[in-house]
């Protein structure tokens, strides 16, 4: 029930953003639509609603967003350099990294932020063993532990505080 309410509130917020400036007629229609959608999809997306009440998690999420934006900026500079270089100095390969995150949301956010940061792209996720397959544009080492240190470690510390 609580996850349905949270979901309806999120849908309604997106609706308000889409129909800005707010007007009561469109707001009523949006409320009806978001309650309907929340009743249909139920608890498909938010499985642990009790975690939404912890304010510390929101604080760490803010810090995480700042870290990801900075990494993303560095990634873009690096890729622009690679593309403009006459010889295209790449050493691509697919490596395997381990993660200790288990929840669906945590794994999704980790995979997305790996895709957006320098030289790495998530190819597949093995949820049972907590293994990610990552395409790396400049492979430093094919060893699982070292690759984990280089790719996952900087996000995982913060993500463990947010999602577990």
């Amino acid at each position: 029930m609580r996850s349905k309410m949270v979901r309806a509130a999120l849908c309604f917020l997106v609706w308000l953003g889409l129909t800005y400036p707010p007007h009561w007629e469109s707001a009523v229609v949006g409320l009806a639509a978001s309650v309907f959608v929340a009743a249909l999809t139920g608890s498909m997306f938010i499985q642990r609603p009790h975690l939404l009440g912890h304010p510390g998690r929101y604080f760490w999420f803010l810090i995480y967003v700042l870290v990801v934006v900075w990494e993303c900026f560095k990634a873009n500079i690096e890729v622009a350099f690679l593309v403009a270089h006459p010889k295209v100095p790449i050493r691509p390969g697919i490596v395997k990294v381990k993660t200790s995150l288990r929840s669906d949301t945590g794994l999704t956010v980790l995979a997305n932020s790996i895709t957006l940061t320098p030289g790495t792209l998530t190819v597949d996720v093995d949820r049972e063993n907590g293994v990610l397959f990552v395409h790396w544009i400049k492979v430093a080492s094919g060893d699982i532990e070292k690759a984990t240190q280089a790719i996952v470690a900087r996000f995982e510390r913060i993500l463990l505080k947010i999602f577990e």
């Binding site: 691509p92 697919i94 395997k96 190819v123 094919g142």
Partner: peptide, 8 residues
Amino acid sequence: GSVIDRYE
């Protein structure tokens, strides 16, 4: 030129 393919 790829080095390694753990997925394969």
